[in-house]
Amino acid sequence: MKNIMKKIMIYALIGIMQVSVGTAVLASPRDAGQEDQAPPQDQGQQNDQDKHDRDRHSQEKHDQERHDQEKHDQDRYNQDRHDRERQENERHEREMRRHDHESEREWHDRQERENQRHDNTMREIAAGVIGYILGSANK
């Protein structure tokens, strides 16, 4: 539990730092439309600014693509998890019904075993969700 809290705090701080850097970059003064009036010694600075803008745009595009891919992966994982839960619940319902050849006692014993098995399976599915969340947090 301590590891989870540490990771949450670290990622929150990283997010805050990214927002502050992004705000600083967006708030920096720009001389829009004044490239022709710049003295020759400022031309190198303008080229540096253009390179910086291109790099930033490229980074933003890369970040957006990564975010889209992560969202797609998460959606696919959620769908898989939902399918597993649905299949397990259907199987559980079938197993809980009494078979024709069973006595009352055999049926209750089998129900008890089936309930334990079902609980364990649902815990495994939930543990997979937690493992996926922690695994994606380490990327």
Rank of each mutant, 00 (worst) to 15 (best):
K6R: 13
M9D: 12
A12G: 13
L13K: 13
I14F: 08
G15V: 03
G15W: 02
I16C: 07
I16S: 08
M17C: 11
Q18Y: 07
S20W: 06
V21K: 05
A24C: 10
S28M: 08
D31T: 06
D31G: 10
A38H: 10
A38V: 12
D42G: 01
Q46C: 05
N47D: 14
Q49C: 07
D50I: 15
D50L: 15
K51W: 07
K51R: 15
D53V: 08
R54G: 03
R54F: 09
D55H: 10
R56C: 08
H57V: 07
Q59M: 14
Q59A: 15
E60T: 12
D63L: 13
D63A: 13
E65F: 04
R66F: 06
D68F: 06
D68A: 12
Q69T: 06
Q69R: 14
E70N: 10
D73Y: 03
Q74E: 11
Y77N: 03
N78F: 01
N78R: 10
Q79V: 08
D80K: 04
R81T: 12
H82T: 10
R84W: 03
R84Q: 12
Q87M: 06
Q87P: 00
E88R: 01
E88T: 02
N89F: 03
R94I: 03
M96R: 11
E104R: 09
E106M: 06
D109W: 05
R110K: 15
E112Q: 14
R113P: 00
E114R: 09
Q116W: 02
N120I: 01
N120A: 11
R123L: 04
